[in-house]
Amino acid sequence: MIADTIILVCIAIGLVFNTLGVIGILRFPDVYTRLHAETKTTTFGTIFLSLAVIVYAISRLLSDGDAQFLTLSVHTFVALIALAFTNATGAHAIARAAHRSGQVPSPAVIDRYSEGDA
């Protein structure tokens, strides 16, 4: 069954990227590198976990013809869109707030952002 293979691959990719994001949070030295590691990888991994659920719902819809799997796939897609947009915006807000609260990247020499209008 090819759908099972696609689901397995999507779940594996999602879990690997989420794990990499958490390792990045635990190992990286300051706020900005942690934010960089966390936001991109967990968003990517969660998108792939949602894709696994969508593929599962579509395959069950095609094999069983049950309408609730159509609902499951559409709602999961809405959750995926909401997550992708809000995570990017939230990461931007956190980075801006971290800079405004006085954090600087540890080996930084030049800070163009505070040289501007701030």
């Binding site: 999602g14 989420n18 994001g21 958490v22 949070i25 706020v31 942690r34 934010l35 966390e38 936001t39 967990t42 968003t43 991994g45 969660t46 976990l49 949602s50 659920v53 999961t76 959750a79 997550l83 995570n87 939230g90 990461a91 956190i94 707030a97 971290a98 609260s101 954090q103």
Partner: peptide, 21 residues
């Protein structure tokens, strides 16, 4: 620092959404 905790909280929120799905 406080922004570190906010980053961790954001990661927990994302992972919780994935777990709920």
């Amino acid at each position: 620092t406080v922004p570190d905790r906010v980053v961790a909280l954001d990661a927990i929120n994302t992972l919780t959404v994935a777990a709920m799905i």
